[in-house]
């Protein structure tokens, strides 16, 4: 809860206000073995803490229903996906408009040295799927996205399309990128360009 120590803020409008995700002007695209779409307005919370602190590990599990994943891994249930970012940092993503509820739940279950940061407005999720998604990734980042090195469930923060992204593999042909809001339009254009050879367009 909001206290004098940390400022927790419900940032969602009460009135009927139009939200624009970073890629609100770009509709989903399809091509030959390739789909691209924004998973807009997802809740995104950064969680910081120390895994040596059992109460931190338990608190996150209690609030999210997910165990803290280890190096380069993720844990997911129907609503939420928790990604390892660094030894003391995780990214939790989930349904839209749930940031305040989840942040509050986390803070109720956590104590000591930890942090929760709402970054829902600062980044967005881009879903890349299909048999050719891997080729698009190979054009965009130097990280090895081969099955043997990048199985489903893995999460990698890396350079991507001349900027950065957090890449998660959700399934055989299912990938998800977390990209920063300000770079999203550029990265989208990069992906569309990379998908050109697979006929990526609005009407394919």
């Amino acid at each position: 809860m909001s206290d004098t120590f940390t400022a927790v803020m419900d940032q969602l409008p009460t009135a009927d206000v139009l939200a624009r995700s970073p890629l609100y002007q770009h509709s989903a695209l399809r091509g030959d073995g390739l789909q691209l779409q924004e998973n807009a307005l997802a809740t995104q919370l950064v969680i910081r803490g120390n895994t040596d602190d059992a109460s931190f590990v338990q608190g996150v599990a209690k609030a999210t229903g997910l165990a803290l994943p280890g190096n380069l891994q993720s844990e997911a249930n129907n609503d939420w996906r928790l990604r390892w970012i660094a030894p003391d940092e995780w990214l939790l993503t989930g349904p839209a408009n749930a940031a305040f509820t989840m942040e509050t739940a986390l803070r109720e279950n956590l104590s000591g040295h930890y942090a929760v940061i709402n970054v829902s407005g600062g980044q967005t999720l881009v879903r890349l799927s299909g048999a050719n998604a891997r080729a698009v990734l190979m054009k965009s980042c130097p990280y090895d996205v081969h099955d043997r090195n990048f199985p489903a469930g893995k999460v990698v923060s890396t350079v991507f399309a001349k900027s950065q992204a957090i890449i998660s593999r959700l399934g055989d042909d299912e990938w998800e990128l977390v990209v920063r809001r300000s770079f999203a339009d550029y990265i989208w254009r990069w992906l569309v360009d990379a998908g050109q050879e697979f006929g990526l367009s609005e009407h394919a």
């Binding site: 190096n71 380069l72 660094a86 030894p87 990280y143 890396t158 350079v159």
Partner: peptide
């Protein structure tokens, strides 16, 4: 040594 993986120089 924290990610425990080799990465390209561009990331550093």
């Amino acid at each position: 040594p924290y990610c425990d993986e080799h990465r390209e120089e561009e990331e550093f």
